[in-house]
């Protein structure tokens, strides 16, 4: 009982530190200390989360030792690799690293959604719908960010130009929405194959959406996927009943959306122009 109280208090502190840190980051004079405050919030939240081990669900109790070991290995590997790669990357290569880390966050949100959906853990309407939606947005953000990283890093050089691409992508999105609605309508009781198809199509859609966009527009696209990941995290936070995820995710969702608009405006472009101008026949509107 007390562990739940400590976790709640830690998350409250973390949410405050995130917003405070982000506020300081929005002015050049206070910016360098802003990230430290936000980082402190992250440490507090992650450490407090290990108190979950004291109160796990009955089904998971026999697996607890394995799960804790896996958690520590994953944390050390993930933190270690990202810390090392972030330190050594050249200053000019920063934008694609942001894309890569952002895609990882989207993937983590999608993984949470996958566990909820495949494990049939959410049955209630709103929670289930948000789990599906978060899984969709998180998957798109994962594969889309990876393509953005590949393009900026010079690993993917060709820009996809197909006649009728806009129609293909529109159809894909409709199929995804229909599949998602079906899962919600069936209260999550659908065959695992349908869920696998849903996630695979969402990942594919992220690729198709990003491939036609040129490298110069990538910062705007990365910012958009950053907002996407934020939204996905916020939605999965609702599913997990975790206010820290809800607040941090939604703050990033809205801040990222506004940032995307500002960045597009600084380039004298509109966001829809960036996203869709290369669709259809080459050299069309723009």
């Amino acid at each position: 009982m007390n562990s739940a109280l400590i976790i709640d208090a830690a998350y409250f502190l973390a949410a405050f530190l995130f917003i405070f840190g982000l506020k300081r980051m929005s002015s050049p004079i206070t910016a360098p200390t802003g990230i430290r405050w936000a980082g402190l919030g992250m440490v507090v939240a992650v450490l407090a989360s290990f108190l979950y081990t004291l109160d796990v669900e009955p089904d998971a109790r026999p697996h607890l030792t394995t799960n804790v070991t896996l958690a520590i290995i994953a944390l050390v590997l993930g933190f270690g690799w990202a810390w090392w790669s972030g330190k050594k990357v050249a200053m000019t290569a920063m934008p694609q690293m942001v894309a890569l880390y952002n895609g990882m966050g989207g993937g983590a949100a999608a993984a949470i959604a996958a566990i909820e959906l495949f494990g049939h853990k959410s049955h209630v309407g709103v929670g289930l719908a948000l789990a599906v939606l978060g899984g969709l947005i998180g998957s798109i953000s994962l594969s889309g960010s990876l393509i953005a990283w590949g393009k900026l890093d010079g690993r993917i050089n060709k820009t996809l130009r197909l006649t009728g691409l806009q129609a293909i992508n529109g159809t894909l999105l409709l199929v995804l929405v229909a599949l998602g609605a079906y899962v919600v309508y069936m209260h999550g009781a659908v065959p695992a194959g349908i869920l696998a198809l849903f996630f695979a199509l969402a990942l594919f859609y992220g690729v198709m959406m990003t491939m036609p966009i040129g490298g110069a527009d990538m910062p705007v696209v990365i910012s958009l996927y950053n907002a996407f990941t934020g939204l996905a995290v916020g939605f999965e936070g609702y599913v997990l009943n975790n206010p820290a995820l809800m607040i941090a995710g939604m703050v990033v969702g809205s801040a990222g959306t506004l940032l995307t608009l500002l960045m597009a405006k600084a380039m004298n472009r509109s966001v829809s122009n960036v996203l869709f101008s290369n669709f259809g026949a080459a050299g069309g509107e723009g």
């Binding site: 992650v46 958690a71 880390y101 966050g105 950053n226 995290v233 997990l240 941090a248 990033v252 960045m263």
Partner: peptide, 23 residues
């Protein structure tokens, strides 16, 4: 700021931790 907000949604690790510990 894009990078900073990218860091902040890294809080998703906490949700993933919960999901893994209850797997």
């Amino acid at each position: 700021l894009m990078s900073g907000s990218n860091f902040i949604h890294g809080i998703v690790v906490v949700g993933a931790l919960w999901a893994l510990l209850n797997a």
